[in-house]
Design a protein around this nucleic acid. Structure first.
Length: 243
DNA sequence: AACACATTCAACCGCAGTCCC
DNA sequence: CGGGACTGCGGTTGAATGTGT
């Protein structure tokens, strides 16, 4: 999973690092420390630019770097910190000794971000289904939302009715669901996203584009204290769907 | 077995901030 | 103060690898 090595017109190499290059870089920094990155390759005998040397050291060779899969707790913390800090990967990485910002950024894009996108779809569907059952705004915002949503999913509620889709555009409310369902059981999404049903929903949304989704957004509001105590049971996701 | 498509992750690129002359 | 050099960050790329058909 590495780019093939190549040389520019000045003889500067780019692409995959060889073991010999790694050893040279490691040996030089062990002996002289991280000094001037621009000058380093010259003195270390590397045909690389300083930037490439720094990147290789910071993301791969530096002692103490941890590789391998992220744990569930690490994933929770990434989500929490990303909600607080946004795409400040280096700031997020400070909370993960041994993990690099590059690693966390990659993990976010490869795992969490994708899943969030799917969860957004779930929010739209669940909210629409609640609407078809004529639940009031009060009911939507009450403490029973978690079970209401779960019931919708468990009852295998039919796909959105055309009548519901013809409702006038409006903000149909904010709901909350217990993130524990999603995080600890993982069934929240899988149970909901039947491929055929999803296609029906998307098809109907296309047909009724005048009342289509204006924007979907989802943000995680995680109880800080509980997160720091590694207790995620009381954390909540807040989803808002505007139609 | 062969091919197509999806995923992973090391590496690159451009830009902004900081430092120094 | 201005400008160049350097560093660090975040977004993106693309080849290797994995998975599905």
């Amino acid at each position: 999973m590495v780019r093939p090595a190549s040389f520019d017109i000045n003889g500067i190499k780019s692409g995959a690092w060889s073991e010999e290059e790694d050893n040279k870089l490691r040996a030089f920094i062990d002996r002289f420390g991280q000094t001037n990155w621009r000058q380093l390759p010259l003195f270390a005998g590397l045909k690389r630019c300083g930037k490439s040397c720094r990147l290789r050291w910071m993301n791969y060779l530096k002692p103490g770097i941890r590789r391998g899969n992220f744990t569930k707790d690490e994933e929770h913390l990434i989500i929490k910190l990303h909600n607080q800090l946004g795409n400040k990967w280096s700031a997020i990485a400070e909370q993960f000794p041994g993990r690099t910002d590059n690693d966390i950024k990659n993990y976010w894009h490869a795992h969490i971000h994708k899943r969030k996108g799917r969860l957004n779809g779930t929010c739209a569907r669940v909210t629409r289904e609640i609407k078809t059952q004529n639940l009031s705004q009060e009911e939507l915002s009450s403490d029973s939302n978690s079970s209401t949503i779960t019931n919708c999913l468990n009852q295998n509620t039919p796909a959105i009715s055309e009548a519901a889709l013809s409702q006038p555009a409006e903000n149909i409310g904010v709901f909350e669901s217990n993130a524990d369902s999603y995080f600890n059981h993982g069934s929240f999404i899988e149970q909901d996203f039947d491929g055929v049903e999803e296609e029906n929903i998307m098809s109907l949304l296309r047909d009724y584009s005048d009342v289509g989704v204006a924007s979907w957004n989802l943000s995680a509001a995680i109880d800080e204290q509980d997160s720091f105590n590694n207790n995620f049971g009381d954390d909540y996701y807040y989803g808002k769907v505007e139609i």
